[in-house]
Simulated assay, not measured.
Amino acid sequence: MNSTTTTATSISTDSAVAPPIEPRWMSVVFMQGDEADAVLDIIDRNGPEAAINHLSQWDYGDETRDAALVNGYVYDEIPQSPTDFTIRSDAVGYALTYNHHFGYVSLLRRFEPVVEDAREPVAPPSRFGFERQRPARRANGLRL
């Protein structure tokens, strides 16, 4: 007599278990020109940590986050070019990107997006009311 053992594997389709949310980076402030020159001087005199402390004045918490989300200034990774200097301060959750040659500084803050629970699937809102538009009636051409 031959006996076989079958192992059943169950795949959880429970919608309560959400995939882990990856932290993102949002723009707090971006400066160029004379404003950036003042901050670049702070970096040269006192170091990048002093610049991070100075630029963090422009972080208004949820208001800054909401503005970044609305305006599309949210990133998976810290945006930087090959010529940028980037200082990441995990203790305070900020990243400073600056470039002396191009004359700009940028402060970003790390945050974890909040995913709202939806018990039922929700259709995306219609844009510009296209679902209410009807095709125009076609005339047979010019009439004299």
Rank of each mutant, 00 (worst) to 15 (best):
V122D: 04
A136C: 09
S3Q: 07
D41C: 00
A68G: 03
S89F: 04
S126P: 04
D117S: 13
A51V: 11
F111Y: 01
D14L: 11
D34G: 01
P82A: 14
R24V: 14
V70K: 14
V122L: 12
N140G: 14
E63A: 13
D117E: 08
P23I: 02
D37E: 07
E77S: 12
M1R: 05
P135R: 14
V92C: 11
F111H: 00
P121Y: 02
W25C: 06
S3W: 08
S27R: 13
D41V: 02
Q57N: 10
S89P: 06
V105R: 01
V92Y: 05
P48T: 04
P82K: 11
R24W: 10
R137D: 11
A67K: 08
S15K: 15
R137Y: 09
A36W: 03
E112T: 15
R45P: 02
Y104D: 03
P82Y: 10
H54W: 10
S106A: 07
L96I: 03
E63P: 02
G103Q: 10
E131Y: 12
A139T: 12
V39M: 14
P125R: 00
E120P: 03
T13K: 05
V28G: 06
R143M: 11
A50H: 02
A91L: 09
N140W: 11
P135M: 12
G61V: 01
E63T: 11
I11L: 10
T9P: 02
R143F: 08
P48D: 05
N53I: 00
Q80K: 10
N99W: 05
V74G: 04
L144A: 13
V17N: 14
G61Y: 00
I52P: 15
V105K: 00
